[in-house]
Design a protein around this nucleic acid. Structure first.
Lengths: 258, 258
DNA sequence: CTTGACCTTGCCGCAGCGTCAGGGTTTCTA
DNA sequence: TAGAAACCCTGACGCTGCGGCAAGGTCAAG
């Protein structure tokens, strides 16, 4: 038989057969006078065996082990291992599909946030909050999406619980919005602008105890953390001053600004 | 932030971040005077978004599409497609695992054939037949394993049904074994050996109608087919002569040997 | 004699980075 | 204050399981 014939017989491509030769999985047959490979039954048997193994999902190196390591024990071992591996993959796919399902529901409901796939809790919260028109509010949205995908799930849930009133209580929402507008106004202000102090105070006042607790824990880490710096750099100087005061007030032992 | 910091923040490696730059998924930030990349919040936001998408299983080119193609519609579309794809993968894994389960049971029962994973039916049949000590019988085993993994499932089942009596009926088994021994004896015989004719006749006699029917269909194809030649080449000349006579007798319109 | 269907070797491409190699910078520690 | 550890930079190869192409040689049929 020539390579195309044996390949068709085994249901693979000639290219695959040559590949198996290259890897040493399948012995090279003798050549015909014209240089063509000339396969016999034993090659067909070997090739069929390789194909059966690869169809199970074994990698070619593992196939080689099974073929080499003289039969019996090794195979069962490899199969067991493979099954574990497939089980893991299946679980991973299941998980992704579960999350996809949620997202597809959001998409059909039209509540899929433009920021991409977020946790369902945050997606809901943001969709309630949404287009406030304030640049500062937009930044906070971004910060929330970051936190959403970065902190461990339980911290995130506590944060979301703490924020929910801001979306559900119209009066509170209005107050926060007004504060955002005042923060926006500081975009071109200097760092000694007299509006900074009062605004920070009012921000602190509007934040509930629960949030204060949350920040307290994360804070000393986050102020040192480079991300804290980057976040401040993201604001105009006067705005950053407000945020610094705000965070300092929420931290339990308010050490200085830097 | 430097690259290691933003990478840790997003839960990826610096290498992955550079890779995203390379692919144009993530804009290159400004550089510090020392040449280090200097990331801000917007990069962190973008990176987190990329990571959320890749975690769902999207490929990087698709991530790029979603990021580029201005939001909303495209994402849902890609997610739908991805879900289909994952469903397919899951089904494939399920199937493999089902087959693995059978094999692992065989392995635990000690009936796992040395030839590797075969169809359960053939595995059972071979385990009943097994070590006959005849070289010709061993070849037939090989041919069976080949057929097992090559023909469509229904043909295979018919063949197995037809062969089952040979394993289950001890008297029949003994007769076949005797014939194999006589075939073995021809290994060094010439092509005009007088034992050839009678042996072929007795082989034909022992084969039940059902098998004859099977061969009839597959035969004219298989004699022309290169595999038929290879199979004959696998036998010694006198043995091949027996097989040729045998097959010719089973074929409906027994056209000559070649 | 040509066409078309085979065969030969050899090398690039794919996804998503990991992992050197071969540098420079910054920072902590002794 | 020096040395080591821990970062950063660019560039290039490696992995899986082949597919696809290049640049030929071979063989049967029209």
């Amino acid at each position: 038989m020539r390579i195309g014939e044996i390949a068709a017989l085994a249901g693979v491509t000639p290219r695959a057969v040559r590949h198996y030769h290259h890897l040493g999985l399948l012995p090279e047959p003798d050549r015909l006078p014209n240089g063509y490979r000339d396969y016999g039954v034993r090659h067909a048997v070997a090739l069929a065996r390789i194909r059966r193994l690869t169809e199970l999902g074994l990698g070619l190196p593992e196939v080689r082990d099974v073929l080499a390591d003289d039969e019996g024990r090794e195979l069962a071992e490899v199969l067991e291992e493979l099954d574990q591996d497939l089980a893991r993959q299946e679980a991973a796919i299941e998980e992704r599909r579960a999350r996809l399902k949620l997202l597809l529901e959001q998409a059909r409901a039209g509540t899929l946030p433009a920021e991409g796939p977020l946790s369902p809790g945050l997606a809901e919260l943001l969709s309630a909050f949404s287009p406030s028109g304030s640049a500062s509010a937009a930044k906070d949205r971004e910060h929330l999406t970051l936190i959403d995908s970065m902190v461990p799930a339980e911290d995130r849930d506590r944060l979301l619980d703490a924020l929910r009133p801001f979306a559900e209580d119209p009066e509170l929402t209005a107050r926060v919005h007004a504060l955002y507008v005042r923060l926006d106004a500081l975009v071109d202000a200097k760092e000694d602008d007299p509006r900074i102090g009062p605004l920070a105070d009012e921000l602190v006042a509007v934040v509930p105890e629960s949030l204060s607790g949350l920040f307290a824990g994360a804070d000393e880490a986050s102020r040192e953390h480079p991300f804290g710096q980057a976040m401040l750099d993201d604001f105009a100087p006067a705005q950053a001053a407000v945020v610094r005061k705000f965070m300092a007030a929420l931290a339990p032992k308010g050490r200085g600004t830097q």
